[in-house]
Each structure stands twice: as C-alpha cells, then as structure tokens.
Amino acid sequence: MKLRGWLLGRVGGALATILMVLLLNFVLFRLMPGSPDRTLARNPRVSAEAIAAARVRWGLDKPLFPDQLVAYVGATLSGDFGYSVKYGGREVTSVIGEKIAPTLLIVGLGEIIALAAGIALGAWTGWRRGKFGDRVGTLSALILYSMPYFWLGMLLVTLFATTLGWLPTSGISTPGGPGGVAGIVDLLRHAALPIATIALGLIGQYAILLRSSVAEALREGYVLTARAKGLRDDRILRGHILPNALLPTVTLAALNAGYVIGGALTVEIVFSWPGLGLLTQEALQSRDYPVLQGIFLLLSISVVVANLLADLLYSRLDPRVRHGAAR
C-alpha cells in the first residue's frame, strides 16, 4: 500500500515536471523573436490577411492567459508541435520523428556499453581502493569525465578514421552502399565511433560514482559479516556489495539522461550523424525555433519518463523502498 502511494507520488511528480516544461516552452514561444506571426511578418510576400489568418489560427488574437496557454497545451498534447520554418512548413513532429532512430541507436548502445564498463571499472577500483590499480583506474575515469564529448569524438576520428583508416570518418552509411546484411555492417561501421565516443564519455562518471559507493559499502557491517562467513572476495563483491552499491547508479543513470543527450547532440555534429543533434545544429543556424522547441520538449519528456522508469526499477531493487520503509 505504501509502495502504491510512493509510486503515485512519483507519477504525479513526473506529470508536474512535464507541465512545467510545457509552461517553459509556452513562455519561450511567446518571448522569442521567431514566434509564428513575427516570422511571417518578416516575409514581404506574406499578406496582412494571411498574417491575420495565422494569428487567428494560432489563437494569437486571444489573451495570453488563459486562452493562448490552454490552446498551446491542448495543441501540444494532441501532438501538434507546430511547423518547421526551415523545412518548408513541414510539421515539426515529422521533421523530428525521422531523426529519433539514429540518435536512439548511438545513445542507447553507448549508454549500455558505458554502464557495463563503468560498473566493472568502478567496482574494481572501489574494491582495490588506495592501491596502484585504483589510482590508474580513477585517474583514467577522471580524464574521461573531464573531456568534452565532441573533443573526444574529434580525437577518435583523427586517430581511428583519418590516421589508421579503420573506420569511416562521418555519415551513417556509404553513399550508394550495399543493402542487406552488408548494409547493416556498413551502418555499424559508421556507428562504431559515435557509440565509442558516447560510451567513453560516460564511463568516467559511472566508474567514479560506483567506486565511491563500493568504498562506502566496504565499511558496512554486512561486509564484515560476509567476511566472517569466510566467503570469497568475488562472492562478497558480487553477492553483497554490488546489490547495494548499484542502487545509486540506477538513479544517476536516469538523472544523467538529459546530460547524455546534450553530449550526444554534439557527438552527432562531429560525425555528421543524421540524428537529433545534427538537426539541432541546423535548426539553430536557421533559427528554426519550432523545431528547437519540439526537440527540447521531446527530450524533456524522454528524460522524465527515463527517471520514472528508474524510480520503478529502484523500487524493485531496493526492498526498503518496496516496503515503504523510510528512505
């Protein structure tokens, strides 16, 4: 019962966050120099009547609050994100829609690899804290953490694509390339460096966090009990420490989703990877605000959902939350 209350609270919080994003977007939408009627007004070929019609269509002739806000929220909730300035008035949803899959591919795979490697590195350094291996591991994690994603990407291109020639420098596929299985291989060869960049950029954070939670867990009484039981080190680490130490990582991975996406956007620019990042840069250059807003809204909702999922996962992993004990 307590768990249900807790979950309801989380869902409510997520909804409140999304509402706040909508509000923020609305304010920006009205604030921005590129708001629809002003954008139209800049175009000499658009007649005054057309502008007036557009104002009516967007509800700009009504008061800002509550009419315009209600209209905006209603339109957004029904999937109407407005029209792209750059892409000849195409719907923002369709412009953004086709860019989601490429971004999801590199961010998803990069995140999975980073989690696996970061957890391994963090567990190892935390277990051996203070020893030589820990120092080297922690310094590497710190260096990776401190690198801007795009710079890491540029270094990888210079080394692995240009100098060594192992992988393509940019794009998502070879123009006029093969289809079928060979096409998938081609895609993966193009995706390898962007994925590696995102994974490397993230490993540092997960490793540093897990190292500190493992080091903290090592001081706990249950570890002493496990040692007294005569268990082997790997059993103590995997059976007793990690189930506890992984809990904060779940939260961080979700909290980080927004940060990862920010980084991934710049990685796409480095590799000319045709996803949301490249779209963002194009939209910025052409001041295509509706597209930018759509991207922000989409990413915000994804992040909020990711956090909600993390909360659910957390409640599955931590029996204290599951049973509503104080947290």
């Binding site: 009484g221 249950y222 002493l224 009990t225 992993l317 931590d318 204290r320």
Partner: peptide, 12 residues
C-alpha cells in the same frame, strides 16, 4: 555482532 541492522545485508 552488535546491531544486527547493520550486520545483515539490507537487500537480501
């Protein structure tokens, strides 16, 4: 040990 809340693993 003293204090079984810390001596037992909370997630097992």
């Amino acid at each position: 040990f003293q204090g079984s809340l810390v001596a037992l693993n909370p997630v097992i």
